[in-house]
Amino acid sequence: MNWLIDFWRSSIGGKVIMAITGLLLFGFVVAHLLGNLQLLSGPDKINAYAKMLHDLGPLLWVMRIGLLVVFVLHVATGIRLARANKAARPVAYAKEATIQASFASRSMVLSGLSLLVFVVYHLLHFTLGVTNPGHSALKAAGAGGHDVYAMVTASFSVPAIAIAYMAFQAVLFLHLSHGVQSLAQTLGLNHRRYSPMVRTLAYLLAAAIAGGNAFLPFAVLSGIVKVAS
């Protein structure tokens, strides 16, 4: 195991861990979005999807724990690297300037930590039912305990919650737009022809995910998706 810890501790190893965990998390975000978009097809569809996930039983737990490990690794490695980076420049420049680094790339730590806060809130809200117990009560009240539709629409009909969710999607966009192109470079993919494409693709994917996610609260708030009666 020593060699694995050595690898994690090395600068490039740390970056590769960030890239791979980032890629997995990105995959999760894509799947998460695709699942949730079923909200637009009405209660039956999304509730059936929720039930299907739930019925996976132990497999669901394997997935959850896996996701948690990936997430923790991503956050912990990110914090380790950020601290090392800070220590690498003990005296700051009196006059700071940036030549070509994007705003997104410069705010990765901040956007990452914001997302961490958001994820915690998101779990407290929908999964654990801590922040708005009434919302998750709606879920439990559904047929077979899976009325996700009612829970989500009730939540997003609260403007403050909907706006908060939408705002965090902007942060997610920022994080993904740099993260996706960055992971390609970290994993050694750099090509004069393809790298510009990867960069464009990263922006498009990030926009699609953030836009898709943000569309759900927007749809509820604007009445495109009806609140469950």
Binding site: S11, I12, G14, K15, L81, A84, N85, A87, A88, R89, T98, I99, Q100, A101, S102, S105, R106, M108, H178, Q181, S182, Q185, T186, G188, L189, N190, H191, R192
Partner: peptide, 25 residues
């Protein structure tokens, strides 16, 4: 005690010999 790369490519822009970040990949 150098820091880590976060793929921002400031190095490439500052390099007087314009060495591309391809070498990092």
């Amino acid at each position: 005690g150098f820091g880590n790369c976060t793929n921002q490519y400031e190095c490439e822009a500052a390099c007087p010999k314009e060495i591309p970040v391809r070498v990092i990949a």
